[in-house]
Design a protein around this nucleic acid. Structure first.
Length: 435
RNA sequence: GGUGGGGUACCGAAGCGGCCAACCGGGGCAGACUGUAAAUCUGCUGGCUCACGCCUACGUAGGUUCGAAUCCUACCCCCACCA
C-alpha cells in the first residue's frame, strides 16, 4: 500500500477515483514540477479515527504514492477549542494529556496507511500544539490577525451562509477558527516546506485562508485540493450503523463488525467505494462492476471491498478471522458447529458470558429479559416485540413464544448459545467455565 | 430591558381539559420478496414476565380540577421585532 507507484498525475488519479472536488488554480503545475509536501489536519477528538476519516487518509496515501511527502497534522491545539462548524452542542474540551494520547492513537492508525520510513518521501506527523500552546494572544493578534480582513472573512460563503441563517448564529470562536487553521499552514510551510493542504470540501474556505496567510507572511505560493464530502444516504451518515460509529480501532469496532460494515455496502455505492477506499486499478474495478451486474447474488465486489479495507486496517489475520466468523454466522445453521469453532470466533463477534447455573435453573432462563441484559435488544419490551415479529432466533431456529426460555439443551456442547435478531445481529452466549 | 411567538417521543410536526403513551411524515427495527443489496408491501417503534392492568413521560417547579400535554403561577431556555 505504501510503495510508490509510477508517478501518474496525482490530480488525474484523484479525479478518476472520485476524490477530487476542487483545487486551486496552480496546483497542477506545482505537483508536476516536482516533489511537493502536503498536509491534512485530523481532529484528535478521540483516540481512534473512524471510517469517515478514510477519505482524507486516502488523499494522503495517493499523495505519497505519487511521490510527494504527506504530513498528517493532528490538531492537538485546535482540538482544545474544536471546530464548531456543524456542531449542535458544545464540544467537551480535551485536556492536554488526552489530546496527546489521542494523537498517539491516530499516529498508530495512520502508520497502517502511510510509509513513515521511506527514504525518498517519508510521511510525517505534526501536532499544532507544538506552536499554538505557547503562542500568546497578543502575538497572535499582531502577527497573524493583522493579515486577516474581517471584510473578506465576512464575504466567505461559509460565513455568509451562517450570518444569513436565522437559526444558528456564528460564534466568535468559530469565526476565528480559520485563523488558527491558516496559521497551521504557515507553520508547516516554514518548518517543513509544506505548500499544499488537502481536506474535505467543507474546508475550502479554511484552506484558501491558509494559502493567503502564508503568502502575506512572506511564504511561498501554496495550493489546495479538496475532496468531496460523502453524503449520507437516507439519513444514515456514512460510517455509522445502528451500533454506532465504525472505528478503525479494533477495540472499539471489532474486525468482524468492520468487515461486515463494508460487506453490507449497497450495489449502487459499490464502484464508487471501490475507487475511494481501495487501491484497486481501473481494470479490477471494472471487472468487479461487471461481476456485480452479472452475478449480483455472489456479492463479489462487496467481498473484495470489505477484504481490501479490512486487510489494511486489521491485517491479514484480522481479515481472516472476520471472514471466518462471517462464514460461520451467515453460512447456515450454527448447530453443526463444534465448540472449538465457536470459541474461535468469539473474539470478534459480540458475546456475553452467563452463569451456567442460570441455564440449568428450574423452568429455564427467560429469553426476553436476557436479550435486554446482553444488549441484543434495547429492553425486555423490545425483545418481546421482536419475538412477536418473528425476528428472534436461537441456534438458527425462530422463536415464536414471547415467554420462551433457554435451557441447557439449547446450548451447543452444553455451553454456547447463538442468539440472532433479524438477519445480521448476532450475540454469542458462553455459559461455559473459563478455561 | 420591552413586546410578541415558542419549547411535545431519535428528528420534523399535530394535539390545546377526559376518547392521549399522544395524529401524521422522516428515520430506525422486524417480517415478506431477495443477494447479509436496492426498491416495494406489512407490522412495530416509553417501561413493566405487556391479554387485562400498572408505572413513567409532552422545558423545570408548583397550583386549579374528579381528571392536565392541554388551564393558572413562577422560573429556565430559544426565536422574532423594538430598545
Amino acid at each position: 500500500m505504501t510503495q510508490n507507484a509510477p508517478a501518474t498525475s496525482l490530480l488525474d488519479e484523484l479525479r478518476w477515483r472520485g476524490l477530487l472536488a476542487d483545487f486551486t488554480s496552480h496546483a497542477a503545475e506545482a505537483l508536476a514540477a516536482g516533489q511537493v509536501t502536503g498536509y491534512i489536519g485530523f481532529d484528535p477528538t478521540a483516540s481512534s479515527l473512524h471510517v469517515g476519516s478514510l477519505v482524507p487518509i486516502m488523499g494522503l496515501v495517493h499523495l505519497q504514492r505519487a511521490g510527494h511527502c504527506p504530513i498528517a497534522l493532528v490538531g492537538g491545539g485546535t482540538g482544545l477549542i474544536g471546530d464548531p462548524s456543524g456542531k449542535a452542542s458544545e464540544r467537551a474540551l480535551l485536556d492536554k494529556a488526552q489530546a496527546e494520547e489521542n494523537a498517539r492513537g491516530i499516529h498508530r492508525q495512520l502508520s497502517l496507511f502511510l510509509d513513515f520510513e521511506s527514504r525518498t518521501n517519508p510521511a510525517r506527523m505534526a501536532n499544532n500544539l507544538d506552536w499554538l500552546s505557547d503562542m500568546g494572544m497578543v502575538d497572535f493578534l499582531r502577527d497573524v490577525g493583522k493579515h486577516f480582513s474581517v471584510n473578506a472573512m465576512l464575504r466567505k460563503e461559509s460565513v455568509k451562509r451562517r450570518l444569513d441563517e436565522e437559526e444558528s448564529g456564528l460564534s466568535f470562536t468559530e469565526f476565528s477558527y480559520q485563523l488558527l487553521q491558516a496559521y497551521d499552514f504557515r507553520e508547516l510551510a516554514t518548518r517543513f516546506g509544506c505548500t499544499l493542504q488537502m481536506g474535505g470540501s467543507d474546508q475550502w474556505g479554511n484552506i484558501t485562508a491558509g494559502i493567503d496567510l502564508v503568502r502575506r507572511m512572506g511564504g511561498p505560493r501554496c495550493h489546495g485540493i479538496v475532496f468531496p464530502l460523502l453524503e449520507s444516504r437516507g439519513g444514515v451518515k456514512f460510517g455509522k450503523t445502528e451500533a454506532g460509529t465504525v472505528w478503525l480501532d479494533p477495540e472499539r469496532t471489532s474486525p468482524y463488525r468492520f468487515y461486515q460494515y463494508w460487506l453490507n455496502t449497497e450495489d449502487a455505492d459499490m464502484v464508487r467505494y471501490l475507487r475511494l477506499f481501495t487501491l484497486l486499478g481501473k481494470a479490477e474495478v471494472h471487472e468487479l462492476a461487471q461481476a456485480t451486474s452479472k452475478n449480483p447474488h455472489r456479492r463479489e465486489a462487496q467481498r473484495r471491498l470489505a477484504a481490501e479495507v479490512t486487510r489494511i486496517v486489521h491485517g491479514q489475520e484480522g481479515l481472516d478471522r472476520a471472514v471466518q466468523a462471517s462464514r460461520v454466522l451467515f453460512g447456515g445453521s450454527v448447530e453443526g458447529l463444534g465448540a472449538d469453532e465457536i470459541a474461535e470466533i468469539f473474539a470478534d463477534v459480540p458475546s456475553k458470558t452467563i452463569a451456567k447455573s442460570r441455564l440449568e435453573a428450574e423452568g429455564g432462563l427467560p429469553l426476553a429479559p436476557l436479550m435486554a441484559e446482553v444488549g441484543i435488544a434495547s429492553s425486555g419490551s423490545a425483545a418481546r416485540r421482536l419475538i412477536k415479529e418473528g425476528g428472534v432466533y436461537v441456534g438458527g431456529v425462530r422463536v415464536t413464544d414471547v415467554r420462551a426460555t433457554l435451557a441447557a439443551a439449547d446450548a451447543v456442547e452444553g455451553r454456547f448459545v447463538v442468539l440472532r435478531v433479524g438477519k445480521k445481529r448476532h450475540c454469542l452466549l458462553d455459559a461455559g467455565a473459563p478455561i
